[in-house]
Amino acid sequence: MTEKSRKILGNHVETRNLDDLIIADNYRGKITFTSETVHGQQDLLESICPTKALSKKDSDTMTLDNGKCIMCGYCTESFPKLMKIENKCPSPTKTKNKLVEYSAPQEHLPEKSYEQIGRELKEKIKKLFGRSLAIREIDAGSCNGCEIEITALNNPIYDIERFGICFVSSPRHADVLLVTGPASRNMQTALLRTYEATPSPKIVIAVGACACSGGIFGDSYATTGGIDNVIPVDVYIPGCPPRPEILIQGLLLAVNRMITNGI
């Protein structure tokens, strides 16, 4: 598609090229290790991280679990030489252990913009369903930070509906369940029932550190320590909260998964 997406912004008929939607330089997103060795610092790093996203693997390696990281920046403040926090989003994954990275520097795929992903998604959805993709959002005890970002997908700037994605009001109409929160115990039954009410084939996406691992709320008397302890999860989207850019990336992954699963 050659035509550029443009939108009317604000009061005047001012248009902005949406391919240029950029993430601010100081956005606290993904943690990456620099090439310095973590040798000897691991215990300290472990004790600094509030969610235990950082943990010791062996004498020279640390692991970073993106599904637990809440992007607080405490580790980079204390060890600016060992790791840095970038204005990028960690990638969504299909399995939980893929959220984990090692302190050895890693290759990252070139990132696509929100618009590019959206267009790709639109074509795939059209081919696969011949209609829109229906999403039901479930809050299983989030702090409402994740909801703010999911709502942002519907604002005129991100406007996800133009890619053929709509939020529906009943699980009975849904193809995808977008679940946030650490799955509080009080929501456990409701979450399970909503899952059961959704017709198969269905895809469940865990949104945010809480949904992936319990996040800062962890696993306690009141939480279940992540959505996958209650219902099966197909895609994990890390972040606290995840930006709209990565939410749409997670949706693309979900659709890809539907294609490989063959519906």
């Binding site: 607080c72 005890g141 008397y221 009141a222």
Partner: peptide, 20 residues
């Protein structure tokens, strides 16, 4: 429904973690 045990959790955390 969204009860996550925040008050109890805080009792097991360091001060700057409770800030988060």
């Amino acid at each position: 429904y969204a009860h996550k045990g925040i008050e109890k959790l805080a009792e097991s955390m360091k001060l700057d973690e409770v800030l988060l």
